[in-house]
């Protein structure tokens, strides 16, 4: 069983997830529907990547493939360097547990469990038990600013608080990759921005890869990179230089960071 402190493991250099030529067709024959085609995408640790695009463009499908929930019908998916598209269900489930944290639009908390127990459940899945499990759950809630809400039930929490509990739960497995589908859609602007800032913090400070699917253009400025999908293809992939960030490391993405942040954002919002 993977230790709950797997963050101490040495993550191989290179992208957390790497997709090459990924395609996804739902169904077969006359009713077949091509949701994704020829996707090449690398998700880096330490960055918040936003996936945008009109409804039906394939964002959720792409996120599910990145998250080892859905199997692509074409192409390769590498998670931390390991090919995962061909793995069986049980293995993919184990990979999700070991490496990926999920956050959902509807929070998907367990309504019959307290906030602490929701986090403990994820720790239990990782094999952590007893007092250590409870202590770790409290630490994680503390980390998302809900140190005093451990005993509250989801029904008693605001949307933003619920999403924080969900983030604490997602962090329970010390994931290298955090995937969120429309995490702010049900939240007001301020709360949504705070959640996004939490994601940015996780990426920048804890060096996680974070992918957020959103329709919400008002939070784009909190991303490091914005990937836009249309009809199942990536039509735009823009890196936004961090405003007060220290000089970006000299790598291939440097080139993309040249353009001014404002120009990029204006263009994106207009599109």
């Amino acid at each position: 069983m993977t230790s709950a402190r797997s963050s101490l493991e040495i993550v191989p250099p290179g992208p957390v997830v790497s997709l090459r030529g990924v395609g996804k067709t739902y169904g077969a024959g006359k009713t077949a529907l091509r949701a994704l085609a020829a996707i090449d995408l690398d998700i880096a640790a330490g960055e918040v990547t936003i996936l945008m695009g009109p409804s039906g463009s394939g964002k959720t499908t792409l996120l599910s493939i990145i998250g080892c929930i859905l199997r692509p019908t074409a192409g390769e998916v590498r998670l931390l360097g390991q090919e995962v598209a061909e793995e069986n269900e049980a293995a993919r489930s184990a990979l999700r547990l070991a490496h990926i944290g999920f956050i959902f639009q509807g929070y998907n908390l367990f309504p019959t469990l307290s906030a602490r127990q929701n986090v403990e459940l994820a720790l239990d899945l990782k094999g952590l038990g007893g007092r250590a499990r409870r202590r770790r759950a409290d630490e994680l809630l503390e980390q998302v600013g809900l140190g005093d809400k451990g005993d509250a039930y989801p029904a008693d929490l605001s949307g933003g608080q619920k999403q924080r509990v969900a983030i604490a739960r997602a962090l329970a497995g010390e994931p290298s990759l955090i995937l969120a589908d429309e995490p702010t859609a049900a939240l007001d602007l301020q709360t949504g921005r705070r959640i996004m800032m939490l994601f940015a913090d996780l990426a920048h400070r804890l060096h996680r890869g974070v992918v957020v699917v959103t329709h919400d253009s008002r939070i784009l400025d909190l991303a490091d990179r914005v990937v836009t999908l249309e009809d199942g293809r990536i039509i735009r992939d823009i890196a936004l230089p961090r405003e007060s960030a220290p000089a970006a490391p000299l790598d291939a993405s440097l080139l993309r960071r040249r353009r001014s942040r404002e120009t990029d954002l204006k263009e994106l919002v207009a599109s």
Binding site: G67, I69, A90, S93, A94, L95, R96, L97, A98, I100, G101, F102, F104, N108, F110, P111, L121, A122, L125, R169, A170, G173
Partner: peptide
Amino acid sequence: LPEFGTLRAIGASSRY
């Protein structure tokens, strides 16, 4: 069921 689905998604084994 939605909770079982969530468990499944976050990596709970069938045994769990």
